[in-house]
């Protein structure tokens, strides 16, 4: 698997896929896409990187343990639901705000953070699974 072409192309492929996954995640509310799909794309990116350069390299470049990312995602999703209690609405009710920064209006919502949470859980868990299996492959 570790041919020269693959090893040369892998970093670019990975970064492109990661970028694309974030794009898919963020446009998900209005166009096809979303946290689940984005997360799967990102996980595939890490899997490819792992096949090209070995698991330790991926672990080093990810910095956090994949399951920690997953856990943070779940925490974020739950937190964005809990915010409802501050506004006295039922759990997980979407709350929207549109702050203006330097004349550009940005739509922010708890729903978006929830979707980011989903993304992180999927990225973390699936990457963790793939890396764990690849690791055995190296041995």
């Amino acid at each position: 698997m570790r041919t020269l072409i693959f090893r040369t192309a892998a970093p670019y492929l990975t970064s492109l896929m990661l970028l694309f996954s974030v794009f898919v995640l963020l446009r998900g509310h209005n166009e096809p896409g979303g946290g689940f799909i984005g997360g799967l794309i990102a996980a595939s990116a890490f899997a490819i990187y792992g096949i090209a350069f070995g698991v330790p390299e991926v672990r080093r470049s990810m910095y956090f343990h994949p399951m920690a990312i997953s856990g943070f995602g779940l925490f974020l999703a739950a937190l964005s639901g809990l915010l409802s209690y501050v506004f006295h609405v039922p759990f997980l009710t979407g709350i929207w705000t549109s702050p203006s920064l330097f004349g550009i209006t940005v739509d922010l919502s708890t729903v978006m953070f929830f979707d980011i949470g989903v993304y992180l859980v999927v990225v973390g868990s699936i990457t963790s699974i793939a890396l764990a299996l690849e690791e055995r492959e190296d041995g």
Partner: peptide, 17 residues
Amino acid sequence: ILTAIVISFSFFAFLLV
């Protein structure tokens, strides 16, 4: 189905391991 696909994949991985 969207969530079902992801969950069945993670279970598939679990069973595989």
